[in-house]
């Protein structure tokens, strides 16, 4: 079986003018459908670069990024936008909700970019926000906002959920709730979930851990028996 996502010798070079910097150096890995993956590394390891490339927000200098059999490294701006729209559900550290739209409207927004989105109310119900559909982001707590953000990502019915430090701005208790939600997306709904973090504790819960350092993959660990998020000692 071929993998859902394949990075083949991907290199990303930033030219700062003074000197060239390799943010991703010959990175290769693959991710299968329905996997719960953690990309782990200290700051400056190249996590964001991998996330950007995977999310279609940046161009690789060389290498192939095969998603569903297509090499997105060869896409142009417009194709990348379409790729993001159809395939990637983003969850950000700072939620990034549109402040002038209600929770429901923030999720329903997806109708504008995806042809066949899931029903916004149902998705919000499934993340436990059925009571707060009409509230604005400023009226919701951080955890609630992050759940709206996850609902927005899920509503797209994307190929993968791409989460950038999803619990970074939350207290640990709320963080557990959010992570359980994400883990369940993978376990119960067979969604591919990729979490980028510097928090090593998360590694125990993942099906696959990709460790980065200085722009290189140092290790790829396959976890045969990942822990439940609630079992981890935070």
């Amino acid at each position: 079986m071929s993998s859902l996502i394949q990075f083949k010798n991907v290199t990303k070079e930033y030219d700062t003018g003074l000197k060239k910097q390799l943010a991703a150096n010959n990175v290769s890995f693959s991710i299968n459908q329905g996997e719960f993956v953690v990309i782990l590394g200290p700051s400056g390891a190249g996590k964001s670069t991998i996330l950007n490339l995977l999310g279609g927000m940046d161009f690789a200098t060389s290498g192939e990024i095969i998603i569903n059999g297509e090499d997105i490294a060869k896409f142009n701006e417009k194709q990348l936008t379409a790729y993001r729209a159809e395939n990637v559900g983003f969850v950000f550290q700072f939620y990034n909700l549109i402040p002038t739209l209600t929770a429901l409207e923030n999720v329903a927004l997806i109708k504008n970019v995806v042809k066949y989105p899931l029903d916004a109310v149902e998705v919000l119900n499934s993340v436990g926000l059925g009571e707060h559909l009409g509230k604005f982001p400023s009226q919701l707590s951080g955890g609630e906002q992050q759940r709206v953000s996850i609902a927005r990502a899920v509503c797209k019915n994307p190929t993968m959920l791409l989460c950038d430090e999803p619990t970074g701005a939350l207290d640990s208790e709320t963080g557990v709730v959010i992570l359980s939600l994400l883990q369940n997306m993978s376990r119960k709904k067979n969604k591919t979930v990729i979490i980028v973090t510097h928090n090593a504790a998360l590694a125990q819960t993942a099906d696959k851990v990709i460790k980065l350092k200085n722009g290189k993959v140092t290790d790829i660990i396959i976890n045969d028996a990942p822990l439940d998020v609630s079992e981890v000692n935070w």
Binding site: T81, A82, R84, V88, N96, R152
Partner: peptide, 16 residues
């Protein structure tokens, strides 16, 4: 800018 960036990440084309 932040809002627009979010929209862009979500997949809104620049024209939109």
């Amino acid at each position: 800018e932040r809002e627009l960036a979010t929209l862009k990440v979500l997949g809104f084309q620049s024209a939109k």
